[in-house]
Design a protein around this nucleic acid. Structure first.
Lengths: 193, 193
DNA sequence: ACTGTATGAATGAATG
DNA sequence: CATTCATTCATACAGT
């Protein structure tokens, strides 16, 4: 979730919409026939996943036919490829007798290869029932306040060094969840180091 | 940077099977608004790449609001960071108004024929810069003709013949826009090096 | 007007 | 860290 979540591009409506005669509403990109034509042609020519540069160029060219952004081109190819494949896949079901008990996506499909999967605690008492939050109201120790910033070399957190939780030195910051709902005095405290 | 527009996005449609594991056949984590809120807050506080410990703690805290695993937190941060960065690059492009000053530059000769890097130019560092995308209004150099990936024998169909004079030595494909509107003889040239 | 379908947009989950 | 695939949500538009 970024700031601009749900496709509500309510931004600057004035003239925002490409002035095509078909009276198109703004809110989401509505490709013109020309744009679609070009995109389709590119796709048919073999372009499936354009690189950033190509996307840039394509959208720039297409911008002549109407408002368009790079991401539109990006999504277009993403979707087009996905749907075609999706369609193609529907034609491969139950080709034989019966049980095609495969492609069954549900629970644990692929366990995280590396470190992940650590959150496991209560399982003994009422396993899958509604989780009775044991009020783990402990203070959440977070980042060292100086390690963030995209400068992470290759420090895979594979470290997995048991537990350290010792360096609780400075800056602590409490964050209280703010919700409209009013549940228990549950305030998540996130302490930053 | 619009924030908290209406607090919807509550994908309560179709399945909406997040929440406790009372037999919900959810395949993938569906974060609750509270979880997202916290994660976002953490992100905005500067957390970008939480360590294993932090991930652990965060997911533990967030588990109060619903089912969640460490890997979810991990992926969330990965994606969030990546997308924000990607947004800096894709959501740009063509912001100019109605400057139809398309420059039909003399096509730049395509580099060597067979597969070769499509990106033959700049590749400087531009971490998080909010610069205006350069208007690459030149012939659209696209993929290296010899398709890639997948077993999709896309038939290269080059209908639209070049009604122009322009024709490169390489397999170029000229696409002429055909519209009822009668703007300039703008022919979008898509050259596939 | 409502409904079904096509498709733009978003994002969880991976993989390299 | 970037790139990609799979799912799903949201909407524009066509058909009845």
């Amino acid at each position: 979730m970024d700031e601009g979540m749900s496709g509500f591009c309510i931004k600057a409506a004035g003239g925002g919409c490409h002035g095509n005669g078909t009276g198109t509403k703004c809110g989401r990109w509505n490709p013109t026939t020309e744009q679609v034509k070009v995109l389709t042609e590119l796709f048919r020519s073999g372009l499936r996943t354009p690189s950033t540069d190509q996307i840039q160029k394509i959208s720039t060219q297409l911008s002549f036919y109407g408002k368009i952004e790079s991401k539109n081109v990006f999504y277009w190819f993403q979707n087009h490829k996905a749907r075609e494949r999706q369609k193609r896949r529907k034609v491969s079901t139950a080709h034989d007798d019966d049980h095609k008990d495969f492609i069954r996506r549900m629970d644990k499909i692929s366990p995280p290869k590396h470190f992940l999967e650590v959150n496991h605690h209560h399982h003994h008492h009422h396993q899958v029932s509604d989780h009775q939050p044991e009020r783990v109201m402990e203070t959440l120790q977070l980042f060292p306040l100086n390690s963030f910033e995209e400068s992470e070399p290759e420090k895979l957190r594979s470290s997995m060094h048991a537990n350290d939780h010792d360096h609780h030195q400075t800056t602590s910051f409490s964050y209280t969840i703010e919700t409209d709902m009013d549940y228990s005095p549950l305030d998540l405290r996130l302490s930053f180091l």
